[in-house]
Simulated scan of single mutants.
Amino acid sequence: MDWSLSDFVFAGALLSGLGLAVWFVARGPRNLPYRLAVGVAVGAALLMVWVTGAVGIVGGERHAANGLYFLAVGVGLMAAALARFRARGMAFAVGGVAAATALIGVAAVAAGWGDDSARYPLDVLGGSFLLAAMYAAAAYLFARSETKRVIF
């Protein structure tokens, strides 16, 4: 693989974001479900960015529909910031990202985007639903961390 300067900058940004998330979890709330939720949500976002940037979920990595996944995560980050990273708001923000991710996959298949791949539509739907399931698990954990008694 022939990496350009922009590839190294992109990889550095991903690793910096991961390091920032680890720092936040280490210094943040001592609530285990909240910490797990942050880990799952960050892991899903990292996986989504990595896969979308490397090979693309819809078609190739340069297919315009892949930008919708970035948009969903960006809106989710803004919603999380507006919720001041509190558990209830985070549950809604990450749950919205889960729903948007699944809908993007369904819309891409309905529109016929990415139909030039060998495993279409399984790759589009499988990738979208896997990420949506990860985001949904994080949303559940955020909602669970809101309760007074947390049993783990």
Results as ranks from 00 to 15, higher is better:
M1F: 02
D2C: 00
L5K: 10
L5H: 14
F10C: 09
F10E: 07
A13D: 15
L14H: 11
L15R: 02
L18G: 03
L18V: 08
A21H: 06
W23T: 03
W23E: 07
G28L: 04
N31M: 08
L32N: 10
A41G: 01
A41W: 02
V42P: 04
V42Q: 13
G43H: 13
L46Q: 13
V49Q: 12
T52E: 09
T52C: 10
A54F: 01
A54V: 10
G56I: 07
I57V: 01
I57F: 03
E61A: 12
N66V: 11
N66Q: 10
G67L: 10
G67W: 14
L68V: 00
Y69H: 05
F70V: 15
A72L: 14
V73I: 09
G74S: 09
L77V: 15
L77M: 14
L77T: 10
M78W: 12
L82E: 14
L82A: 13
F85L: 11
R86Q: 15
A91K: 07
V94S: 01
G96F: 04
A98E: 03
A99C: 00
A99R: 00
A100N: 06
T101W: 02
T101D: 01
L103F: 10
L103T: 02
G105Q: 04
G105A: 00
V106M: 02
A108K: 00
A108D: 05
A108P: 05
V109H: 02
G112T: 01
W113D: 06
W113Y: 04
A118F: 13
D123C: 09
G126H: 03
G126Q: 02
G127F: 07
G127M: 00
S128T: 00
F129D: 06
L131F: 07
L131Q: 04
L131T: 05
A132W: 01
A133L: 13
Y135M: 02
A136C: 10
A137D: 08
A143P: 01
S145G: 11
E146S: 05
T147A: 12
T147Q: 09
R149I: 04
I151Y: 11
F152H: 11
